[in-house]
Design a protein around this nucleic acid. Structure first.
Length: 127
RNA sequence: CAGCAGGGAGGCUCUGCCGCUGCCCCGCAAGGGGGAGAGGAAAGUCCGGGCAACACAGAGCGCCGUCCUUCCUAACGGGAAGAUCUUCGAGAGGGGAUAGCCAGCGUAACAGAAAACAACCGCCACGAGGUUUCGGCCCCGGGGUAAGGGUGAAAAGGCGGGGUAAGAGCCCACCGCGGAUGUGGCGACACAUUCGGCCGUACGCCUGACGGGUUGCAAGACCAUGUAUACCGACGCUACAGGGCUGCUCGUCCGAUGUCGGGGGGUAGGUUGCUGACGAGCCGUGGAGGAGACUCCCGGCCUAGAUAAAUGGCAGAGACCCGAAAAGGAGCGAUCCGUUUCGGACACAGAACCCGGCUUAUACACCCUGCUGUGUU
C-alpha cells in the first residue's frame, strides 16, 4: 500500500464510533472547517487513523455540489496525511478525525488544501 | 438574410501525475496485471407495473380515483390520430374545456328593482280629481308592457320587418336552439330536409360507467451477538405463602418459584435481496405493415452496483461558440467564407430495488418542415 492511498479502512464509519468521537473529541476551527479529533490507545501495528468528511445539506442543497466539496477535501487529506499516520502508528495510538465544511461558498481547492494541512499540523502538536 | 412556430437528435475531446469501488487472472502472502464504472433529465416522487411481506369465502353499501371518440400499450391519470366549443397570435401555430343533470335539490359575493313565479325608472291606454291660453300639463288609482335606461361575470334567444294603445315568437324571413328522418363516418360528430315558436348560465350535491386490499427494498430472507421476561402450552410439584366459591371450616378451583418449547421486547453488525449471463432488455440510414402511437421479422450486444455512500482531484493542451481587430476571397448587393491575433463563455445537474410515462431545470450548438418581414434581380 502506497503512502497516498485512502482505502475504506481509513474512512470512519459506524454509528457508535462516530457518536463517541463527537461526545469526547476535542475540536477547533480553521476556515472553512470545523474539526473534531479523538485519540485512543491501541496495541495494534496496523494503521489506526480514520477520517470523516461532512458537508452540510443546509448550506449546499444540490448533491453534486456536496460531492465536489467532499472529493476535494478527501484529496487534500489523502495527499497530506502520511506524516500524521506514521506518527500515530509509532506512538501505538488510534486517531479519529472529523472534518466539517462550514462555508456557504465553494472555496478554491488551494484554500481547502492549506486549511487541511494546518489542521493536521495542529492535531499532531496537541497530545 | 433576420425574427419566429412545430418536431427530431446532441450536450465537449485529448495528455500527464496521484487516487476510489466492484469483477476476472497470477501469487502462500505482501502485492502485481487486465478490463468496467452516472443522466437526459440519474431530480420532483405525481401516475402505472414488476417484485416482496401481511391480509383475504362470496355479495352489497360506503370511501377514493378516472370521465368527448377511436386506437396503442404489460398497465396508466401516459401516448397517437381525430371531434366540438373557446381563447391567444399578423401567421405558421399554441393554450384550455368537454360522461349525464328538462329526475330532484342547493348556491351565485359586490352592485342592482329583480339572480328565476323579474316592474326601480321609463312607455301605454283607461277611471277619478286639479289647472288651462282648450294644444295640453300636474297628481292619484287599479291595470297592461321585458322595446329603452342603469347594475352585473351573467338580465329571460339575436337581428330586421310586420303588428300594436304601448309592447311581446304575437306573426314572418335569416341565424341560433331542440326533436324527427335521411346521407357520410368504426365513432365523437358533420351536412341536408322537415317539424316545434323555443323562459337561461356556472359550480356543487346527485346519477351513471369503469378501476382500486394495505404497506414499501429501511419490503423481505439468512447468519452471528444474546438478555430482563408480558403472555400461552406441555411436563414436573402438590412442600409452603396467597386468592376465588363464603364470614369460618371442610372440600374444590386457580397458582408464583423448576425444566423444555412457543412468543414477544431490546442492542450493535455482516451476508443476501442487488443488478440481470436473457429481461414488457439495449443497439441498427436492416426489412414488412400502419395516417400515427406502435407491432412483427432479421442481425448484433450483455451495458454502474456504492452503503458516513465509489465513478474523482490537480495541472496543461485543443475543438465548438461569442465579441473585437487585421489583411484576403466570393457576390450587382444585403451579406457570406476560411486564415491570424487578443479577450470571454462552456449549462442543468450525481444512480441508491428495477422498468414504462408525466412534470420541472438546462449554457451552447446541429438537422428537417413551416410562417412572417426584408434585400437584390
Amino acid at each position: 500500500m502506497t503512502e497516498f492511498s485512502l482505502t475504506k479502512a481509513e474512512r470512519l464509519s459506524g454509528e457508535q464510533r462516530i457518536a463517541r468521537l463527537f461526545q469526547r473529541g476535542k475540536g477547533g476551527f480553521v476556515y472553512p472547517f470545523r474539526y473534531v479529533c479523538l485519540w485512543g490507545e491501541t496495541e495494534s501495528e496496523a494503521i489506526n487513523s480514520a477520517v470523516l468528511i461532512s458537508v452540510s445539506k443546509r448550506y449546499h442543497k444540490r448533491a453534486n455540489r456536496r460531492n465536489l466539496l467532499k472529493r476535494r477535501i478527501r484529496e487534500a487529506y489523502r495527499l497530506h496525511k502520511h506524516s500524521l499516520v506514521e506518527s500515530v502508528r509509532i506512538r501505538k495510538k488510534s486517531l479519529d478525525i472529523a472534518l466539517i465544511y462550514t462555508s456557504k461558498e465553494i472555496v478554491p481547492y488551494k484554500t481547502t488544501e492549506d486549511a487541511v494541512r494546518k489542521i493536521l499540523e495542529k492535531i499532531l502538536r496537541e497530545p
